[in-house]
Design a protein around this nucleic acid. Structure first.
Lengths: 192, 192
DNA sequence: TGTAGCATGTAAGCCGTTACATGATTGA
DNA sequence: TCAATCATGTAACGGCTTACATGCTACA
């Protein structure tokens, strides 16, 4: 009963809290969609199969209740938070102190090894990264827009703003590093 | 011979590139120390056991060469990049396009669920986060300082600057969100 | 009628961690 | 002589992904 859950378990449980108490619950499929819209930007969007695994685990622990709506229980199975789930989530959220964020940054990692490549290639990589960033930012901006003017979603809106600010900061840094690379090449006769 | 390596494999291989060609190579222990100083800030510092596992894999694939310096080959085993390793790393760095960075942000995740807690508690969490950020920043700043004025380490210096800018941006955002939380409470009679 | 989307799961396998096991060297 | 640090690995296991397997429903 008291064994620890992974952060992803709590994340999935947390997604369920945005259903009102009168809700019939969410299917695993819907949980996945919500994860893709929110969790993805500052955690991960777990694979479908993991969503089902987590939901099954939470149900086994009594943290969510599950109902069978379909004919044989293999379709439209819906999950809702249980009182124990609320309690457990609240305890996790307010008692445990969060670990430091983990960043896996393949672009920065490649830049570290810039010496085996050329400044021009590294600069191009940063330009590509900025394009990817812009795409991602647009996606998050759409999510943010859908949260506007809904006081009950003030926290998700704050997190979305956090994400937008992060993307902006990444863009600024990438632009600056890119010009630093170009500036270093400029006066070098081997560059052209 | 041609099967794909994980990014962490390339990261470990990449750490070896900072040894000059005249170097006798690095022990797994030294690779771990270097990972803790550099990789940790924008990738992960793999556990000791994984460093050894990766090094063994790279040796098996002929991407690093290994020498036995100790009496029984179980001590001071040193690894150096092989020509094949250089080639493989270069191909990875310049040919493959980097995935988008992955962020696992437990603080943002908890903030998303701020509704089940209080603005004051969330603000306190952000304050704690800013303290952790300051600590981390100081560590990275020390690394950055050791890179100063060494042209052969210009790329690592850029990556360190990236990290510092990221931490600064996180601090700014956390401060802003924190005051937004306090501002929302200020005029609320239930707050005091 | 067929295809896109809804819906649920199992199996195999990689990546990475913690725990465990072992032993040498250096310096207080 | 004792503790810290250097040094190398194996074992067990958790988390997560991809691939696979299955079938319904809505709509063009």
């Amino acid at each position: 009963m008291g064994q620890d859950l992974s952060t992803t378990s709590y994340a999935v449980l947390g997604l369920l809290t945005f259903e009102g108490p009168e809700s019939v619950g969410m299917t695993g499929y819907e949980v996945k969609q919500r994860a893709d819209r929110t969790l993805r930007f500052y955690w991960t969007a777990p694979a479908m199969s993991q969503i089902y695994t987590e939901l099954a685990r939470l149900a086994r622990l009594g943290l969510v209740t599950t109902s069978f709506d379909g004919p044989d229980g293999r379709r439209d199975r819906r999950y809702r938070m249980s009182p124990a789930g609320w309690e457990r989530l609240r305890a996790w959220q307010s008692t445990s102190q969060p670990e430091f964020p983990l960043l896996k940054h393949p672009v920065a990692l490649r830049l570290l090894l810039g010496g085996i490549s050329s400044p021009a290639a590294m600069s191009a990589m940063l330009t590509d990264y900025r394009a990817a960033l812009a795409e991602r930012r647009a996606e998050l901006l759409a999510v943010r827009a859908s949260l506007e003017g809904r006081p009950e979603l003030a926290y998700p809106a704050m997190v979305a703003d956090w994400g937008l600010a992060y993307y902006d900061s990444e863009d600024t840094i990438a632009a600056e590093l890119s010009s630093r690379l170009v500036a270093g090449t400029e006066h070098d006769p081997s560059a052209s």
